[in-house]
Simulated assay, not measured.
Amino acid sequence: MADRHPGHGLPPRSRVLVTGAAGFIGSHLVDALLADGHQVVGLDLRTPDGHPPAGPAAPPARPGYTPLRSDITTDDLAPAVEGCDTVFHLAAIPGVRPSWDSFRRYAETNVVGTQRVAEACLAGAVRRLVYASSSSVYGLVGGPSREDQATAPASPYGVSKLAGEQLCHAYAARPGHPTTVVALRYFTVYGPRQRPDMAIGRLLTAAATGEPFPLYGDGSHRRDFTFVSDVVAATVAAASADLTAGGPAARSAPGGGPPRSVTVNVGGGASVPMTEVVDLVERVTGRPVRLDRLPERDGDVPATAADLTVAARVLGYRPRVGLAEGMARHARWLRRVESTAALSGTR
């Protein structure tokens, strides 16, 4: 994986579990962990030969990689966590807007599923659980979000991710629990293998095809876009992060003692209005973007922005890939995918 950050890392040749391993971020994380020589168990509901375009670029049967088709809401997770030093829990139902219509799925996977993963970590004496949370837990904010400020999710999706966070913190605080926790609040991740319904991927596709891009509201909504390699670097660093550096973002057990868990923002370093994002797509691609202007949608907050003070202190993290560079990489990947599809006749 390119753009690796120095500093924190797992012990050499660790055995780790990645839930949601066939997803956008999960597949990049698997690639990075294998490149570092770790033994990776990849758990996902999708079959190895049935990945959507967001799935891993390399075949699943790779040295050091064990794919498991499993459901975190119902299946026995003990075999997956057995012998693992770290569990990276990324499996979730994503999306703000759909969460209004199908919350039961979000509750079952994002809340019940997370509780079952935390329980399996306890039973398997896992050293560190890294939980993938979301900036959606903050809701409406007036400036850069800090980990120690109040949370007020503006969507059922945000509620489900915050509930997952709280479950992980609660398990870490249990007396005698062997597992410490780092909860990472990702801010709008983009890059190669991104879900096709996400904004930057849709904008790049709209520029290439001439199809309209749905722009909700007046375009003034701001987002803190984070390139996937930066997110992966922060996630790997979380496996060995020093929780004592978390300050107010860290939590101890009820009786006191050293911190048992910490919450950390992972952002791209700048909050950009959607109108500027559209302009940047046009500059990167050299093509205009046709807009379909639509009313604002429930759950879409006016702005997201990450305060990265804790991330720098706990993870040694700073974003390395700016929006223009990341968007250009994303566009090149989309062109390769399109070219491959055309050659194979699957387009």
Rank of each mutant, 00 (worst) to 15 (best):
residue 95 G to H: 09
residue 40 V to L: 02
residue 237 A to N: 10
residue 130 V to K: 10
residue 53 P to R: 13
residue 186 Y to V: 06
residue 20 G to V: 07
residue 9 G to D: 15
residue 238 A to C: 11
residue 244 T to Y: 05
residue 93 I to L: 13
residue 3 D to Q: 15
residue 32 A to R: 08
residue 6 P to I: 08
residue 224 D to N: 11
residue 270 A to F: 01
residue 76 D to V: 05
residue 36 D to S: 07
residue 93 I to S: 14
residue 125 A to G: 14
residue 335 R to I: 01
residue 344 S to C: 13
residue 8 H to F: 00
residue 222 R to I: 02
residue 274 M to Q: 13
residue 86 T to M: 04
residue 180 T to G: 04
residue 328 A to C: 07
residue 332 R to C: 07
residue 306 A to Q: 01
residue 24 F to N: 01
residue 248 P to C: 11
residue 67 P to D: 10
residue 173 A to L: 10
residue 251 R to Y: 09
residue 233 A to E: 10
residue 51 H to V: 09
residue 164 G to R: 01
residue 190 Y to W: 13
residue 196 P to E: 14
residue 169 H to W: 08
residue 210 G to F: 00
residue 114 T to F: 02
residue 185 R to I: 01
residue 132 A to R: 02
residue 173 A to Y: 11
residue 141 V to R: 15
residue 141 V to P: 02
residue 74 T to G: 06
residue 242 D to V: 01
residue 180 T to S: 09
residue 190 Y to R: 07
residue 144 P to F: 04
residue 231 V to P: 05
residue 62 R to T: 13
residue 76 D to Q: 13
residue 293 R to A: 14
residue 254 P to A: 14
residue 61 A to R: 14
residue 64 G to P: 00
residue 123 A to K: 15
residue 39 Q to L: 14
residue 77 L to C: 11
residue 298 D to M: 15
residue 217 G to F: 10
residue 271 S to L: 04
residue 251 R to L: 09
residue 237 A to M: 10
residue 246 G to K: 00
residue 48 P to K: 03
residue 65 Y to L: 12
residue 136 S to M: 05
residue 184 L to K: 12
residue 95 G to L: 08
residue 337 V to H: 02
residue 17 L to E: 01
residue 141 V to S: 08
residue 111 V to K: 05
residue 28 H to P: 03
residue 237 A to C: 14
residue 20 G to K: 06
residue 262 V to Q: 00
residue 88 F to M: 04
residue 273 P to S: 06
residue 192 P to D: 06
residue 336 R to T: 14
residue 151 T to L: 14
residue 77 L to Y: 02
residue 219 G to H: 08
residue 4 R to E: 15
residue 110 N to T: 13
residue 311 A to N: 09
residue 304 T to I: 01
residue 327 M to G: 05
residue 332 R to K: 14
